[in-house]
Write a protein that binds this DNA or RNA. Structure first.
Lengths: 227, 227
DNA sequence: TCCATTACCTACTCACGAGTAAGACTACTC
DNA sequence: GAGTAGTCTTACTCGTGAGTAGGTAATGGA
């Protein structure tokens, strides 16, 4: 007769097949990080709706009520993910951009940092980008907010590039261009996923050429190069 | 005592509050169109998962089993929407592009047609674009397929623009640029939703300037104009 | 060694929504 | 006017998964 009663205690699991032996009694802070890590992974894999809280708790190596206790309901958890990952991404990019550099160089550094971050943090990016659609209201604002922040950063960068001290460019004027640029980057990233033979370097260089030189110049063989 | 028994017959509904008096016994073809119209509307409003079959049937003015009888399960219905709307969009654009024109002019017409289509068919566009994320497997292929078709169209256009008859450009080379361009358009469109004061004309012109002249040129005051 | 606190669990409930069974009604044909 | 094909409905089932009730057990301080 197979062990029926109480075979659930993974501390004594003899098979070694249990995915993650749960470490016991860790401080809240540590657990919260583990939960967020797991949530990002699972949300990236399935998207918000298909992601099951049960799976997140599994991956985190903890039971479901802990998630609710520490980070709240599913949508709150999702918002927490967005917040953390958005901050990380924006942080990475703004660190790469030195405002003392020439405008084109700034743009180049920014783009490059963007591509590198995404390359190194696929799940993070997927959660931020692939989920932008979920329109179920509660966290929609949170999602568009991070996007706006990113957009503003780019718009500012473009405004610095386009204006002089005598004749500054309206930040607003730059907004549609910023939108286009961010979207172009995102889309190229998607395309990259199916063509991994390219490097982050090569792709960000192409994007830089497209937005800085324009296709008209490129057709004639002119290229942008980092100084 | 309020009417409890059999108050459901909307043919005799006296209140006038019934949303849509159901027209009765229409041929299959007509119903299918109505269902697809309703589905596009509801999918656009809520996204795939949040959209309820019950609501679609309501909006279509028909009962739920009819949807299953005519167009199959939810995912099949969704695929049918994607297919129809993608065809309409691509049709619109390719009609606008006359391959006899100069390459930049072709590009301009294409962009313009794109912006106009989306302006006139918000729901259609939303379903195609905002849902690209849903990774739940069944119809993912359908979704990426239409995107690939769009991308190929653009890549071809760019290849024609960039190559000469002696030295043709590899279609493949154009792919990352096509991706960037499509993404830029999509993103600008999103931005547009929050800034309706712009016209389709103004925005497509900006995008054209960005991708054809490049930001470097634009900073110096050079602009692209339609001939 | 007792108590309070904090970490942690199993085993539920309960709503929602996809999908269906079973048949009614209409219109057309022969 | 009986049969048949196609339209259309109500009223269900039933799985799934978010969220919770109600506890146990480890830890650290008094």
């Amino acid at each position: 007769m197979p062990r029926v009663q109480d075979a659930r205690d993974n501390r004594t699991d003899p098979s070694g097949t249990t995915a993650k032996p749960r470490s016991r009694r860790l401080p809240r802070q540590v657990r919260e990080r583990q939960i967020l890590d797991a949530a990002v992974k699972v949300f990236a894999k399935y998207g918000y709706h298909e992601a099951a809280m049960d799976e997140i708790s599994d991956v985190a190596g903890i039971s479901k009520p802990m998630i609710y206790a520490y980070l709240g309901a599913k949508d709150e958890l999702f918002v927490a993910c967005i917040r953390r990952e958005a901050n990380r991404l924006i942080e990475s990019i703004s660190q790469a951009v030195d405002t003392d550099l020439k405008p084109d160089e700034q743009l180049w550094r920014g783009l490059h940092a963007f591509f590198e971050y995404v390359n190194d943090n696929r799940d993070s990016w997927t959660v931020l980008h692939r989920q932008a659609s979920v329109q179920g209201q509660p966290f929609t604002s949170e999602l568009s907010e991070w996007r706006d922040r990113a957009m503003d950063m780019v718009a500012e960068l473009l405004a610095r590039a386009g204006g002089s001290s005598e004749q500054p460019v309206q930040l607003e004027q730059m907004q549609p261009f910023a939108a286009a640029l961010v979207g172009a980057g995102e889309s190229m990233l998607d395309w990259w996923a199916d063509h991994p033979e390219y490097t982050a370097d090569a792709l960000s260089m192409r994007l830089m050429n497209l937005v800085w030189m324009g296709f008209g110049d490129m057709v004639q063989g002119r290229r942008w190069k980092p100084s």
